[in-house]
Simulated scan of single mutants.
Amino acid sequence: MLAASVTQTSPTDPLSALEVGERPAPQAPDGWVRVRLEAASLNHHDLWSLRGVGLPDERLPMVLGCDGAGTDEDGRDVLVHAVVTSPGWTGDDTLDPGRSLLSERYQGTLAEEVVVPARNVVPRPPELSAAEAACLPTAWLTAYRMLFTQSGTAPGSTVLVQGAGGGVATALVVLGRAAGYRVWVTSRSEEKRERALALGAHAAFATGERLPGRVDAVMETVGEATWAHSLRSLRPGGTVVVAGATSGPAPSAELQRVFFLGLRVVGSTMGTREELVRLLDLLVATGARPVVDRELPLARAAEGFAAMAAGELFGKVVLRTR
């Protein structure tokens, strides 16, 4: 089968570690099912995997990709929940100490086929295309959990999304607007600020710009470049939800500000199968849809990876397998 994979990681030149070519079709253990993929999407997790972060040499070769949609062995339209829990785990998927994502221990979705535990197959509503559904299991599920589970806010609250343009950020704008939040965004790019406004953000600011008021919560995936601004933007008692640090770790936690103003710093990673189902229900009910920057055939995966590495995207890269 055709797949995008890594056989030797490169910490300094991740794109050189990407291989697109034929790989053996995966075998399904007992309790696992095969999904014939129609579409898959890229995440920054895939770039980290090419660098070898969370992917030691003994697990190579590895097919990349966490997100995918296609048909199961009975011909039903499905999407794949990317979080694989330990056998017998019954709690929150994200709190299982033995959890992993597809493409960490198990072969991923940037391929014509993938095998996953039966519980990781989720029916795809007919209202969503395979390309739209393929955007959801990582970035959009992450955004859903950040906003609705972890932020402690409610519709009508003001939230700040740092770094408009990425998959999680665009998801936060769309979901926040659909659910009745006041959504502000930041970006270094004037073009991305304008596109965020067109997408539904109520206001857009340059990175680090002083805001006209304090916000109830900040959605933080950038890290070092925006951390100080995130803390300074919060009202007393506000919450910063952290789900990434693409620019590096925060240089200072600014603990005096945190305790003096009673701020909450909450970590958030991916989401549960149940949250993914609720996300699907929300999209069907509201008509909100994922933002797709571009669609490419799987054979041209390198183009999508290069655009993501260069920060050229507004939304998701979707790779089509058929």
Rank of each mutant, 00 (worst) to 15 (best):
M1L: 15
M1S: 12
L2Q: 15
A4N: 09
T7E: 15
Q8P: 08
T9M: 06
P11L: 11
P11H: 07
P14D: 05
P14F: 04
L15G: 09
S16G: 13
S16I: 06
A17M: 07
G21M: 13
R23K: 12
P24I: 09
Q27L: 12
D30H: 13
V35W: 02
E38N: 00
S41M: 12
H44C: 00
W48P: 00
V53Q: 04
E58R: 09
L60Q: 09
G65K: 08
D67S: 07
G70L: 08
T71Q: 02
R76D: 05
R76T: 06
D77H: 05
D77L: 07
W89I: 01
W89L: 13
G91E: 06
D92H: 08
D93Y: 01
T94Y: 02
L95G: 03
R99M: 06
L101I: 03
Q107N: 05
T109V: 15
L110G: 00
E112L: 12
V114N: 04
P123D: 04
R124Y: 03
P125I: 15
P126I: 07
E127P: 11
L128S: 02
A130K: 04
A133T: 11
C135Q: 01
C135P: 02
L136V: 04
P137G: 14
T138R: 03
A139D: 10
A143H: 02
A143V: 06
Y144G: 01
Y144I: 05
M146D: 09
M146L: 07
T149R: 08
Q150P: 02
Q150T: 07
S151E: 07
S151C: 11
A164K: 01
G166L: 12
A171H: 04
V174H: 04
G176D: 08
A178F: 12
G180E: 11
R182C: 15
R188V: 01
S189H: 13
E190W: 03
E190V: 15
E191K: 15
A196N: 13
L197F: 08
L197T: 05
A198M: 15
A198K: 11
G200H: 14
A203N: 11
R210K: 15
P212M: 13
V215D: 06
V215H: 04
A217D: 03
M219Y: 01
G223N: 10
E224P: 03
H229P: 01
L231P: 03
S233I: 14
L234H: 08
R235T: 11
P236W: 03
G238M: 00
G238A: 09
T239N: 02
V241H: 11
V242T: 04
A243V: 12
S247E: 07
S247M: 13
G248E: 08
G248F: 15
A250C: 07
S252H: 09
A253Q: 14
L255S: 12
L255N: 12
R257V: 10
F259N: 10
F260P: 01
G262H: 05
G262W: 00
G267T: 13
S268Q: 01
S268R: 13
G271P: 12
T272S: 09
R273I: 08
E275K: 14
L280S: 02
V284K: 03
A285Q: 15
G287D: 06
G287K: 15
R294C: 10
E295K: 13
L296Y: 13
P297M: 10
L298N: 09
A299K: 01
R300W: 08
A310V: 06
G311T: 08
E312K: 10
F314T: 01
G315V: 13
K316C: 10
V317I: 10
V317D: 07
T321Y: 06
